[in-house]
Computed example of a mutant assay.
Amino acid sequence: MFGMIGIVVTFAMVFGGYVLAGGHLEVIMHSLPHEMMMIGGAALGSFLLSNETATIKHALSGFGRSLKGPKWHESDLQDVLCLLFQLLRIARANPVELEGHVEEPANSPIFQAYPKILKDEQAVALITDTLRSASLNYDDPYQVEEMLSQRIGLMNEEAMHAPHALQNMADALPALGIVAAVLGVIKTMSAIDQPPEVLGKMIGGALVGTFLGVFLAYALVAPFAQRLQAVMKQDQSFYDVIKSVLVAGLHQHATNLCVEVGRQSAPEHVRPSFGNLENALRELKRAS
């Protein structure tokens, strides 16, 4: 919502101010298709050249994700804490029963109660793999904790590839705008025998390239990259919460304390309240 508002405000203020100051949009609109072809084409080509296929796909889908916002919200964090609470209770009471939930999460009634989490392969794999490893290495929880930390770190690193790729494109756009402007100057110099009014329009068209490169970089692509990075960080915090609960469980803390450690590790603006989480856990205890 605010992303679309930001785009509208940016275009309205820049081009509205230009028109109110006496500028003529005809010059910009006349040069825009050719300048956009050169600048946008060069930016797209260098983007494809410098990134892997997975990064390209994530970056292209990142524009929509930036506008849509984070995937995980406060209710999802409360759900995953309740899910982990149930799994840890089973692990303490009956490890054999836990094996069925870990080996076939799609058929587990506990996982099925949280369909959004079940659809996320990373979250499910993180939970099941860690609990499976923990069951084999309870004498050395630090080994499992180290493996979990490395996995989370790799996930965070991979998630940041797309925002970094978009930021690199934003950094390159002003220079590409200068390239287009220089080409426009070359075109103008080849028509130096034309009257001043013709040369003026040609020079103005050449400067559109510089304007377009800077405008695209700092008003659109860079903000999208920063917004996508913020969205990715918030979504990655969901997995950090899972890690916190599982690590606390590995050290044999009380189940309620493990869940509270996870709640405290969540970002403040999406952290479930203690009262709401306590009520949810109380309902789970009554249902079991």
Rank of each mutant, 00 (worst) to 15 (best):
S31P: 10
A254P: 01
M38Y: 10
L20E: 06
R65Y: 07
E283M: 15
A225H: 05
N137I: 11
P141N: 07
T128K: 02
V214L: 05
L87R: 06
F111A: 07
M37E: 14
A12T: 13
L166A: 05
L83V: 09
A123V: 00
G41A: 06
S75T: 14
V14N: 04
T128R: 07
K233M: 12
M29N: 10
A162F: 02
E97N: 13
A280H: 02
T53G: 08
P105Y: 04
V124I: 05
Q122H: 11
K116C: 02
R263E: 07
D140P: 03
S265L: 02
V208Q: 03
G184A: 10
H269K: 14
S31K: 06
E74I: 10
A225K: 01
S46T: 14
S149D: 15
L207N: 08
L20P: 00
Y18E: 04
V185T: 09
E260C: 08
G205Q: 00
A217Q: 08
L250M: 12
I203Q: 02
F11N: 13
P223L: 01
A230Q: 14
I28D: 09
V185K: 02
M232P: 02
P174T: 04
A280V: 09
V261A: 10
F238W: 03
Y142E: 14
H101M: 05
P105K: 04
I56L: 09
S244N: 13
C82S: 12
A59N: 07
P105F: 00
W72E: 08
T188A: 00
E52L: 12
S133Q: 14
G153L: 10
V182A: 09
A162R: 02
P267I: 08
G17S: 03
V185Y: 01
I203W: 06
L277W: 00
A222I: 07
E103Q: 13
P105L: 01
V96L: 15
R263F: 05
L60H: 06
P267T: 05
M232Y: 10
D235K: 03
V179E: 13
P196V: 05
L281W: 00
L199F: 02
Y138E: 12
L212D: 11
A106P: 06
E26G: 12
E99M: 14
E104D: 14
K233N: 12
E197V: 00
S149T: 13
A181G: 12
H161N: 11
G62M: 07
P272Q: 10
V182K: 06
I186M: 10
H24T: 10
L60Y: 09
I152R: 12
A191Q: 11
M147D: 13
A162G: 10
I127A: 06
Q264V: 12
A172R: 11
G69A: 07
L176I: 09
F274M: 14
L131E: 04
L83H: 05
H24S: 15
Q78F: 02
